[in-house]
Nucleic acid binder design. Sequence first.
DNA 1: TTGTAAGCGTTATCAA
DNA 2: TTGATAACGCTTACAA
Lengths: 349, 349
Amino acid sequence: MRDVAREAGVSIATVSRVVNGVGPVAEPTRRRVLEAIRRLNYSPNLVAKSLVHRGTKNLALFVPDIMNPFFPAIARGVADAVASEGYTVVLCNTDDSTEMGPHFERLLRGNFVDGAILCGTAWDAALLSRLMPADLPLVVMDRRVPGLRADSVEVDNRLGGLMATRHLLDVGCRRILHLGGPVGVSTAEGRLAGYLEALCSGAADERDAAEADSDLITRGPFRAESGYSRTRAALESGLSFDGIFAANDLLALGALQALRQFGRRVPEDVAVIGFDDIYMAALALPPLSTVAQPTYRLGTIAGRMLMARLDRSACPAHPQPEPKRVVLEPSLRIRESTRRGRVRGSEEE
Amino acid sequence: MRDVAREAGVSIATVSRVVNGVGPVAEPTRRRVLEAIRRLNYSPNLVAKSLVHRGTKNLALFVPDIMNPFFPAIARGVADAVASEGYTVVLCNTDDSTEMGPHFERLLRGNFVDGAILCGTAWDAALLSRLMPADLPLVVMDRRVPGLRADSVEVDNRLGGLMATRHLLDVGCRRILHLGGPVGVSTAEGRLAGYLEALCSGAADERDAAEADSDLITRGPFRAESGYSRTRAALESGLSFDGIFAANDLLALGALQALRQFGRRVPEDVAVIGFDDIYMAALALPPLSTVAQPTYRLGTIAGRMLMARLDRSACPAHPQPEPKRVVLEPSLRIRESTRRGRVRGSEEE
DNA sequence: TTGTAAGCGTTATCAA
DNA sequence: TTGATAACGCTTACAA
């Protein structure tokens, strides 16, 4: 910048003014400066700038598993929502670890980002407050962090679990294996709750003896291998079941694989439904029924919430309002993995 | 920091010394400072620090399509390779756009990152030099950028294409549809070259009349939908083929879907092979044969190359050595989508 | 319309 | 062993 100033025969203040387009500057000088900038191929050092402004215009999006296409899909929503305000979002994969590594802590504590979106992570409020400055604008998505004062967006997971399980009951399943997510992760718990609710309320009415058997419930990581190995174990142990509700699509995809290896036909012998509606679900064989999350909207809403917080924390007075909480509705996406017998409810795809 | 200094009754210089653990500082003062830091919940502003050190210890990894699990898998390799040197890597999804958006340009030009890895992107050297400072340490992976002086790692794509196509010929295919990647993307071009080479050399020897027909070659984005729609179009147009070599696994997955909809059996009617070996390949039905890339190694090598550049650009004298170029060998991973008739070559899974 | 100078939160050099 | 103080590259009153 000094070089540019010298080259153009002006002061660095003037250079700053033309770079930012603020303040009065005579057209001829502006030209000279612009020309000098071009010649020297100068570009402003934004980290210095952010030191002055206390703001980098960078945001971090933390996801637990970048290999699960659900999260990248959310990232797009976030990026689009914040782009108009000039924010850049960088993706940080925590690999499901509660530590999130010393590396990403650096980004937060070290002021490299102005705010963060925590997505599908299993942190609790206490841990979180150790990891990041208390005043860092935050939004939590696809996850509830009890005791944390922060905005949040998520889908109604209990409702989703209910819809999925009811659907399986509707197509005639009586013993439904549940491939659950990790214990203590709110999305997994919500989906399980919906599953149990469907079975209990179902047992009462016309449906004959749909069973809620604790042998039918397994918990584990949200990964395809886990779905595969848990289904395989169930099959090998001789457990009988005619439906599977997987707590996410990756688990369901793994289940499909195991069922096939054991010669079980889907949906004839076992109907399978997942959760999320990642693009792979439609590509599976048979195409996978699933509870679709409004992925892109989740992202945009989270992005906008963060923008709102950021605006407010920029204000002199800090009348930080109560944390907002928005809950979106999931929707059934019925495909061939459950297409058999009497189906009622929405048909799509 | 000033507050900490006051609280501990020392100068900010002393605080800095204890924070960084450099320079002599009496044990009692050290304690006092540490205590003050704890009480005030202070954490150093790393952007200020990076202003004086000219280095943020952040790296950017640009990927063209975060929804393709191949790239996230690479990210892990990179992150592991650079973690020991204290670097954090942030993921930037360019969505295949040549522009990479004004947002990521900010990261590079604005000194938010010390270096970058460009992965699978379709930029050329001229464009690149417009987008980033000329002296930014760079490594290019899974892609050749002609005219760019930068280290690079990639797999031998021509060889991979050759292996895939030869394998299809070996299992008896005679008319092989090629679902190619985008025109002008070096990986796509390499794989196509291998395909053509296999067909040409094949025609000469014992194989009867394997045909290299330009109708059998299609090009397009590296996406599942593209594989689906191109295969569907081929099927609808009545084109005859008994094998498909897809330039990546996503394309192959889409192809599988289309084949199934048209009642073509895999591998009996059409054998299918992909490229990359993303984890979804093994989960497909039937499990997808593919040309496996050493994904993790690609990542670690790229990471280490960048570390080496960074070390060197820190040196006073800048005897920047010639760019290194490493080419890894792919390997055939044969699964059921091509399992038929006489197979020769490596069998894995 | 332009320049001077004080700061942004650090580190590093030099004296004390 | 510690404390002033000058950078780092930029913005922004305030003066000129």
